[in-house]
Simulated scan of single mutants.
Amino acid sequence: MTLSDTVPPPAVRYNARPYLHGPETDAAAQAILDGQYGHGRRADLFERELAAYLSVPDVVAVSSATTGIQLALLACGIGPGNDVIVPSQTFAATIQPITALGARPRFVDHDPGTLCIEPAAVLEALTPDTRAVIPVLYGGRPVDLSSILDRLQEHGITVIEDAAQAFGSRLRDAMVGADERVVTVFSFGPIKQVTALVGGAIVPRTAGEAARLRELRTLGITSSQHERIATTTYTVAGPGLRGTISDVNAAVGRIQLQRFDEVVVPRRVALWRAYADALADVAGARLVDVGTGAVPFNCVVRVPERDRVHRMLREHGIGVGVHYPPNHLQPAFAAWRGPLPVTEAAAREILSLPFHPAMTTDDARYVVAALRQALAAIRCA
């Protein structure tokens, strides 16, 4: 195969795309017909079903993972004067909630093989003003900070996992989200392992924290929507956001969750393994490992002359991408810029290959064959 004489299969033209099982359309339509577009009965059911799946006492559904991170920071009292340790290698959605509250992102380097932060880097970055750590579970890989969690707790530092890409992943025998010492935030956005079209969820540590998050997600109002409808007044106790999930979105999420283990998990795991096998002997391509417990969100390789490879594959109709340009080099966060040599080296090399459940193992082999051709062409140029 050469890059010039083949037509790519339709599935590989997309870096990622939603995967629907079919009943989502009817479920959303019924929610629309029922006329409840705010947080209603379906959203309550979605929360209970998520909690049962994760084996946790409670889950607080929200409008997005970005909002979820901001609500979690608010609930933990993070604000002006506080430092929040966070990797630069993530989507800007992880960082904007920190600065929106007047806190300072303290960017740290990641492990070059996993693109995730390690306990030693967190400890080295601690300051007297540190009040939170946000590990990003890049690609679905669990981040193990268990060796330092007790020490962080002793200093009043909260760990808020950005698990937007890691729903269903496991750390050893436990689901991501099941550690009661950690606040975990998931995304149910368009291309996530479970989609509600848009949406997210927070796993709180305590019943009190859950109640606080529910108040914050409803503009600081202390009563639920059901309670407000039945009375003539309500109380706004403090700050808050409009962060509830719609019943229409929850209806889609419930269908997705029902079929998650049966369809999505095996497809994503099988596709990732197909990529790993095909990439094993590709000179110049290094696979970013997601570990054994992940439900993979994407497949990322490190390649030389990444921009040229990216251009060649996209010109051939293969939907490669980059996740993500590092945040410490972005103009919006220039005030907190500092040298991160590992992150900056990876940022020049990372390339996301097409990855979604509609793809087959043959699709993965096709993409890898095209990548091999592109790398060979660059070496010979």
Rank of each mutant, 00 (worst) to 15 (best):
124 E>P: 01
181 R>A: 12
259 R>P: 00
79 G>K: 02
206 T>W: 10
92 A>R: 06
2 T>D: 13
277 D>F: 00
180 E>C: 01
109 D>M: 01
351 L>E: 09
313 L>D: 13
14 Y>E: 14
179 D>N: 12
123 L>T: 12
133 V>A: 05
267 R>M: 07
311 R>W: 06
6 T>E: 14
356 H>T: 11
12 V>I: 15
201 A>L: 01
249 N>W: 00
64 S>K: 02
154 E>H: 11
93 A>L: 04
23 P>I: 13
371 L>A: 09
322 V>T: 12
177 G>W: 06
43 A>S: 15
90 T>N: 08
149 L>I: 06
126 L>E: 11
240 G>A: 09
225 Q>Y: 14
163 A>Q: 03
119 P>N: 07
30 Q>N: 13
323 H>V: 15
324 Y>S: 14
253 G>E: 04
320 V>N: 09
356 H>N: 10
47 E>W: 03
178 A>G: 13
296 P>A: 02
73 L>I: 10
268 R>P: 05
82 N>V: 08
20 L>P: 00
267 R>E: 12
251 A>I: 10
205 R>S: 09
355 F>S: 09
97 P>L: 08
169 S>N: 04
256 Q>D: 12
75 A>M: 02
367 V>H: 13
232 T>V: 09
62 V>P: 02
162 D>M: 03
197 L>K: 02
225 Q>C: 05
286 R>Q: 10
364 A>W: 09
241 L>R: 05
185 V>N: 03
67 T>L: 03
358 A>M: 01
110 H>N: 12
155 H>D: 11
354 P>I: 09
41 R>H: 10
210 A>D: 12
39 H>F: 15
187 S>I: 00
376 A>E: 14
376 A>W: 07
350 I>S: 04
376 A>S: 13
225 Q>R: 07
228 R>K: 00
292 T>E: 15
343 T>Q: 07
63 S>F: 01
274 A>V: 13
59 V>H: 03
26 D>N: 09
94 T>I: 04
274 A>W: 09
87 P>C: 04
213 L>K: 07
191 I>P: 00
284 G>H: 06
273 R>S: 13
42 R>C: 07
333 F>E: 08
1 M>K: 02
305 E>H: 10
220 G>A: 05
174 A>R: 07
147 S>Q: 09
173 D>R: 01
4 S>P: 00
140 G>T: 10
345 A>F: 06
185 V>E: 00
132 A>R: 03
2 T>N: 11
381 A>E: 15
201 A>K: 00
16 A>F: 08
116 C>Y: 01
71 L>G: 09
352 S>H: 11
67 T>G: 11
